[in-house]
Each structure stands twice: as structure tokens, then as C-alpha cells.
């Protein structure tokens, strides 16, 4: 009996992520959603600049590598040219919420019919642990060595709360991958974000609160504990906007 099978939507390429990094889990959740919806052959993914930059090697669907922050614009082009295909972006916090904020907000307000997977680990991982737009107040990073001082660099951005203020988007939801229960919920949310696109409902963004043991300077298990105690209180999990659900009511 097969108890573990690699999703078809993942290639055989070995992942380059650090030990304890949650990108591997999130890749798998995305791949499982693609498999279960039977859309592998028509899916095109857009990889970011950041730790997931090489996602184009890991997902078995057609892939595009975008410039830093531009994935929603690239995805807009792909979707407008190929409305029958399924287009998703996979972006980190620096990519989506800092350099690419304009692209994010405008794709959302246009209700662009794409799926956005937003991995929030409160740090720039690829470049070695700099302060991110989602780094917590007081959080020590390479570029906030004395802790994030909100008086000089401002407060973290809560992306879901902000985007849910727009009339445009279909689904805005925050999940986490710190325990089995949350991973299951994340899986469900990601699948729904793809299903929404298939149903023509529009912009669906799933923020996945995740960890970065390497740059947080913690063991993987301590990182998950820190996530639970610090990240989730600042970034509460839940559905921030679900237009279809509202219509049902």
C-alpha cells in the first residue's frame, strides 16, 4: 500500500530550502490542490524573487520567473492572454508586500482571476535575513539589528486586512502551517483559491504564515513555537473576505 506519494504537480528536482523551512509544505499543498482539481496540464505558475525563486524547477506545470514583486502583473498578462488556463503566483512577503505592493493591490482591485499564494515569514530569507514589511515590532533582523523600531521604520503591514478593504477581490484568507490542524486548513483554503479561479470568481489570495528557522536563528521546532506565540497574534488566521460566501447569506 502506498502511504506517501509525491504529487504529480511537483517535479523530481530536490528542493533547495533550508532544514525546517515551511516552503516545502506549502509547495506540496499547492501541488496537491493542482492534482486534485485535475488542472496540471493547463496551469501556469509564476515564481517570485526571494527564497521561492527556483519554484519554476519544482512545479511540473509551465512556469514563468517574474521580476521582484511583479508576479501579479505577469500573471495578469498570462491570464488575459489565456483565460482558459489556470494561473497562480507564489510570492514571499518582501516580493508581495514591499516592492510589489502596487501590483498586488491593483491585481486585487481588478479582481484579476488568478490565485495568489503569499508566504509570510516576516523576513527576507534569500538575501540573508533583512527586515521585511511584515517583520514584527521589535524583531531583530540584519537590517534592524536593535529590533524593528516602529518609530523610525513604521509598523508591519497586515496584507489580508488591507486587501479586504477593497471591493475587488473574491477571497482573502490567512492560514498557517505550524501544526497538522492548520496545515489541513491551509490545504483547504489553497484548493478553494484554485477552485475560485476555475469557477471564474476572481482574485483569491491565501496568506500562509510560515517560519524561517535559519534567519530567525532558531531550531525548526522553536521557530514554529515563535510563530504561534508571536506571528499568529499579530496576523490572526481566518477568512477576511469571501464574496461568494456573503452572497450565499
Amino acid at each position: 500500500m502506498v502511504v506517501f506519494d509525491k504529487p504529480k504537480a511537483l517535479t523530481d528536482a530536490p528542493l533547495h530550502y533550508c532544514p525546517g523551512c515551511t516552503h516545502g509544505i506549502i509547495h506540496r499543498l499547492v501541488a496537491e490542490a493542482i492534482d486534485e482539481l485535475g488542472i496540471l496540464g493547463k496551469t501556469v505558475g509564476v515564481a517570485p524573487v526571494g527564497c521561492a525563486v527556483m519554484a519554476y524547477d519544482y512545479f511540473a506545470c509551465d512556469m514563468v520567473e517574474a521580476a521582484h514583486g511583479r508576479a501579479p502583473a505577469v500573471a495578469t498578462g498570462l491570464k488575459r492572454a489565456m483565460p482558459e488556463n489556470v494561473i497562480f503566483t507564489y510570492q514571499g512577503d518582501g516580493d508581495l508586500a514591499s516592492i510589489g505592493m502596487a501590483e498586488t493591490v491593483h491585481a486585487a482591485t481588478r479582481n484579476e482571476n488568478i490565485t495568489v499564494i503569499f508566504v509570510n515569514n516576516a523576513i527576507y530569507g534569500m538575501t540573508g535575513g533583512q527586515m521585511a514589511p511584515t517583520s514584527l515590532p521589535g524583531q531583530v533582523t540584519q537590517t534592524s539589528p536593535y529590533g524593528r523600531d516602529v518609530k523610525t521604520v513604521g509598523y508591519p503591514i497586515r496584507v489580508c486586512e488591507m486587501l479586504s478593504a477593497l471591493d475587488g477581490p473574491e477571497l482573502i484568507q490567512r492560514v498557517a502551517v505550524n501544526n497538522v490542524k492548520n496545515v489541513m486548513a491551509a490545504k483547504k483554503a489553497i484548493k478553494k483559491a484554485f477552485q475560485n479561479q476555475i469557477d471564474g470568481k476572481g482574485f483569491s489570495l491565501i496568506e500562509v504564515v510560515s517560519s524561517c528557522p535559519t534567519n530567525w536563528g532558531m531550531t525548526p521546532s522553536n521557530a514554529l513555537k515563535w510563530l504561534e506565540e508571536n506571528m499568529i497574534p499579530y496576523y490572526p488566521l481566518g477568512v477576511y473576505k469571501d464574496r461568494s460566501a456573503k452572497e450565499v447569506k
Partner: peptide
């Protein structure tokens, strides 16, 4: 910036 990246997306789609 977004406009040229939308161009990039469509060009990638052929």
C-alpha cells in the same frame, strides 16, 4: 512597471 510585466506575461504565453 506593471504594464511591461504584463507584456512579459503575454509574450511568455506566445
Amino acid at each position: 512597471i506593471s504594464a511591461i510585466n504584463m507584456v512579459y506575461g503575454v509574450a511568455g504565453a506566445g
